[in-house]
Structures are given as structure tokens and as C-alpha cells.
Simulated scan of single mutants.
Amino acid sequence: MKLRKVTAATAVVLALAVSATACGKDDKKDGGSSGGKKIKIGIKFDQPGLGQKTPQGYTGFDVDVATYVAKELGYNADQIEWKESKSMDRETMLQRGDVDFIAATYSINDEREKKVDFAGPYLLAHQDVLVRADDNSIKSPEDLNSKKLCSVTGSTSAQNVHDKLAPKANLQEYPTYSACLTGLQNKAIDALTTDDSILAGYASQAAFKGKFKLGGLKMTNENYGIGVKKGSDLKAKINTALEKMVADKSWQQAVDKNLGPANYKNEPAPKIGNIVK
């Protein structure tokens, strides 16, 4: 009797072990999040057309670029953990390892390259203005003199225009870009300034479709890169993924889908490592 009891118990243990092993194999074969494999990606949560968190999920050009890159790195969409990357936090997040990479309208410059590495660039943007669709009075930066020029509180965009290009511009600071858009629509301001890609994203929202247009002034060059931790081998892998995204036309499709409704005339996809000053 004792032998039979031990044998039965052993059989139960063996059955459980086989079952657990089978489950483990299925998880790995599945390749989804059940296998525990994750990648953490930093994006903006509040920039329509580029990186926005919505009740339906995450949308925007940066999101599409990051998702494509993640796939090339071996991660499915359900294996991505999105992290909000505010402008002031991006270098710190990479240095601490809070994220694997950041795609968040992240302009490459000398000061940032001292702290982190960049793959790309993957988009060449420019500082521009957004005006009402029926306003043809602003055709050059000088035309902003005596105009009410809006940007968000703390932004350097409007100040740059005032200091360097249009010293008589009447600067207006609003708490958000959406507030600037409302002011533009109500004629409380004449123009909103920041990167053209950001302006196109906001103007592409359904509520504003057809009401605004980009001025096409190209006042600065903003080379958007994907930030990685200093010395990370991800830089080379991400560059390979970006080159493939351009080659198979997925890059242009992402631009058209997210920024096209604002009649955004994008620059050609930049060459990897080619920083336009």
C-alpha cells in the first residue's frame, strides 16, 4: 500500500511538471507579452499627429515610427510599454534606463549629444507659423512684425522669432498649444509658432480641419532623432530599421496619415547621420 501511494503521488508530480513545461513552451512560441519580453519606449502623450494618448490607444507619426522600429528589433505591438517622455525629462529617462529608446519630437543638438546618443535623424522639421486659412498677410518672418505671435508659456520659439527675425512682433504666451489655436481661430492672435510638424499635428485634428495653414517659413532646422542611452548598441540597430522603413515606403505613409490633413509638405526622408544645420 505504501508503495502504491508513493507511486501515485509521484505520478501526480510528474504530470504537473509536464503540464508546466508545456505551458512554458507555448508562452515562448506565442512570442507575445505572455512570454515576458517587453520594450519600453518614450513618446509624447499630448501632441496630436505625433505622439498622443487616446482612449483607443497611442497614435501619431512618432508612435508609428517607434512601432516599426520595435518590430524590426523583434517586438510585437503588444510587447511595447509606452512611457510619457516630457521634454525636460528625456535625457534623465535614458540615463536611468527608464526606457530603451525615445521617439518624441527629440531634436538632435550638440548639448544633448553630450548626454545621450541619437539614431537617425528620421524627420527634418522646421520652425514655422500656423495662420488662419484665409490669412495671406504673412509670407516671410519679417511680416510677423506688429503681429500677435503666440507660443506656449516657457517656449523659446516665439522669443527666437522676436529676438532674431521680427523684433516688433507682439509676443503672446498661452498655457497650451490648444489655447493658442483657439485664440488663432477667434482672431485674438495672428500666428502660432513652433516646429512645423507639431503645428501640422494640431491642425490635423478633426475640430480644426481646413481652418488653418502652415506659413512655410522654415525659420530653423530641427533634426528629429531617436534617443538611446550613451554607448547603446541599439543605435546601429535602430538606424537599420529606419533605413528599411524609408525604403519600403512605410515612412512616407506614416507622414501622410498623421500630418497630411494639414497639407504638411514634408522634407524628403533624411539620410542617417546627416544633420542639417
Rank of each mutant, 00 (worst) to 15 (best):
N266C: 10
P55W: 06
Q127S: 10
G227Q: 04
K265W: 02
I238E: 10
M1F: 11
P121K: 07
I43D: 11
A262F: 09
G154Y: 09
V18H: 09
L242Q: 13
A247F: 11
K148C: 02
E84Y: 00
L50G: 05
A206M: 14
G60N: 03
G216Q: 05
G49H: 06
P48S: 05
G260H: 03
K249M: 15
K29G: 15
D62R: 08
L217Y: 11
K168F: 02
A17K: 11
Y174F: 06
L184R: 00
K148N: 07
P48C: 05
Y264W: 04
L171S: 01
Q252F: 01
A125Q: 08
A206V: 03
E84W: 06
K2M: 11
D78E: 05
I272G: 01
G32W: 08
K25Q: 14
L259K: 11
G42L: 01
D135H: 10
A17Y: 04
L144T: 08
G97N: 03
A236W: 07
N274V: 11
T176S: 12
A104S: 13
L149I: 01
K25L: 05
N239I: 03
T153N: 03
D26Q: 12
I80R: 09
T156C: 04
K25F: 14
R112Y: 06
A8Q: 00
P55G: 01
S146T: 15
P55N: 12
Q172V: 15
Q253E: 15
F118M: 07
Y106W: 07
Q253I: 12
A241M: 12
V69F: 12
G57M: 00
L3T: 12
S107W: 07
A200C: 10
T193M: 04
G216F: 05
G51V: 08
N145L: 11
N223H: 01
N223R: 02
K271R: 04
N263L: 00
A206G: 09
P121I: 09
F212N: 00
W251V: 02
A236R: 10
W82Y: 09
